[in-house]
Amino acid sequence: MKTYENTGSKDTRSGFGAGMTELGRTNPNVVSLCADLIGSLKIQTFIDENPERFFQIGIAEANMMGIAAGLTIGGKIPFTGTFANFSTGRVYDQIRQSIAYSDKNVKICASHAGLTLGEDGATHQILEDIGLMKMLPGMTVINTCDYNQTKAATIALADHVGPVYLRFGRPVVANFTPEDQKFEIGKAVQLQEGNDVTIVATGHLVWEALEACKVLNEKGITADVINIHTIKPLDAEAIIKSVKKTGCVVTAEEHNFLGGLGESVARELSLTHPVPQEYVATADTFGESGTPAQLMEKYGLNADAIVKAVEKVVARK
């Protein structure tokens, strides 16, 4: 089993901010838009260094999506920034018509996704955004796991032509992916190799999957752990290759089990290699106020929950 070291906990949104800072220095076509959440999105350095390439839209997310679409006409690469809830559900039709159906090169960058937004509660804790966005034809959907990966993904988006939804979060979490790891859209990252189960995790649940692996190892269960940062297009090949070996799968995500990573994995496997699957995800419910750790515990989205799901799925083989 490989050992992953937390090189210093940070929030993924700061990874986004750092990525934007770098893009500001390296790509003159990158522009940043924000709907009154500069501090939350960590883009102050980009703004300070490129004031003419920053657009403060105000609390008007629908207008932000339209303006972003318009900015692409003229060769700009707009990165919109607000919370995940206001980046998706609130502006779904604007994204659908003016961005996705219009084939616009807009990067929709969404912070504070999922339960780990914490105390603000369910109005802000979107658990449906992956589903909403992956259903849009042509939309790429990415959910990064730590600071380094979020920074790398942000930088990679500028070179990818087409609309992308980039999802990250608020809390400080372990930073463990290599700083110099190149971000390849649509390419799974294998973190652990084992024989008994495949754990496919995305976002904050990737670190939890690694923690779960340690516990499972003590119980004599070895796991393939796959970091799926890109939910669409899904690296089905990597997942199928793994389950052919292990014969079962656990998917783990900070999202509703309806519409999320788990469903995407189930669809692929059902077509070519159906195996028992367990879902670590929220069970068609809204969230509530609480600390991130309390919420992940209550809604079953941590290492303990992954261990239980693995034991269940292995027994079903």
Binding site: F55, G66, I67, A69, G70, L71, I73, G74
Partner: peptide, 9 residues
């Protein structure tokens, strides 16, 4: 909104 974005571009 799109037209405004294009104007800013």
């Amino acid at each position: 909104s799109v037209a405004v974005g294009a104007a800013q571009a």
